[in-house]
Design a protein around this nucleic acid. Structure first.
Length: 258
DNA sequence: ATGGTGGCCTTGCCA
């Protein structure tokens, strides 16, 4: 089973690239973030013609997450089931696909350390942990994937000196991210390449970042241990960051022997 | 070619 996470930065703008990529890479499950679509604008029928069931959770101009699956899509839900009320944004969707509980998540950016949005980001990660505590056990096969907007280690950004005092690398964000992992999830790409630097999934459009290899590793396929036992390979498709009208994120793929 | 934002119900905001 090939599971993919990809922040597409507007599905409307990215649809040609997404369709082309699906035809070439044939994932079983594609989790997208930042679709920037309302639910009624999501091209569900186009994906159905390609053999994919789908669930989308969107609000229109910002955010928006989706799961596509050709190995079944059951028990879908949106947001958090943690008893704390609805989230202000459309940032997470859940579904069971081929026996794996999958979540497609778009964690808040935070904007600036100390900003109201930064506190929302930390609270959001805490709610995600609470949702896991209340709805799942680490023994299940779980793939929690998406754009976490956190670089867990200094080597996960191209130059840590540039990020001094910035979001994505602050201690509180990293602790909140680690708290998710400590529940019982493994960062699959880092687990497969423990010694590697330069493993990035995002390159800002500005200042020629991609060409300069000025990237960040902020997208993840987090796997429970029982699912990790089935992991064959995990990789970033940097080619998808090239060419005409790319997203600023590359897809992250993992193949499991399921 | 030796450089270099993009998306959005756009004219500022978000990333």
């Amino acid at each position: 089973m090939r599971i993919v996470t990809w922040n597409v930065n507007s599905l409307k703008a990215r649809m040609p690239r997404v369709v082309e990529w699906l035809e070439i890479m044939n994932p079983d499950v594609l989790c997208m973030q930042e679709t920037k679509l309302a639910d009624d604008a999501f091209p569900k029928e186009s994906f159905e013609k390609m053999g994919y069931e789908s669930i989308h959770h969107g609000e229109g101009r910002w955010n928006g997450v989706a799961i596509l699956s050709r190995v079944g899509l059951e028990d879908s839900s949106t947001g958090f089931d943690d008893g704390a009320g609805p989230d202000q944004d459309a940032r997470i969707v859940w579904a069971t696909c081929g026996g794996v509980r999958v979540a497609s998540a778009y964690i808040p950016n935070g904007r600036e350390v100390g900003h109201e949005h930064y506190h929302y980001k930390l609270a959001w990660l805490n709610r995600l942990r609470a949702h896991l505590d209340q709805n799942h056990t680490p023994e299940e096969k779980i793939a929690l994937v998406g754009d976490f907007n956190v670089a867990p280690e200094d080597r996960d950004v191209w130059d840590i000196k540039v990020f001094e005092g910035a979001t994505h690398v602050s201690a509180l964000e990293r602790e909140a991210f680690k708290d998710i992992l400590d529940w019982g999830l493994v960062d699959t790409l880092r687990n497969s390449y423990p010694e590697s630097d330069g493993l990035y999934t995002f390159w800002d459009y500005r200042q020629g970042s991609f060409y300069k290899r000025h990237g960040m590793r902020i997208d993840f396929i987090l796997s429970s241990v029982s699912l990790l036992e089935e992991l064959e390979v995990v990789m970033v498709d940097r080619n998808a960051r090239k060419g005409e009208k790319p997203s600023d994120h590359a897809p992250l793929l993992a193949d499991f022997s399921l």
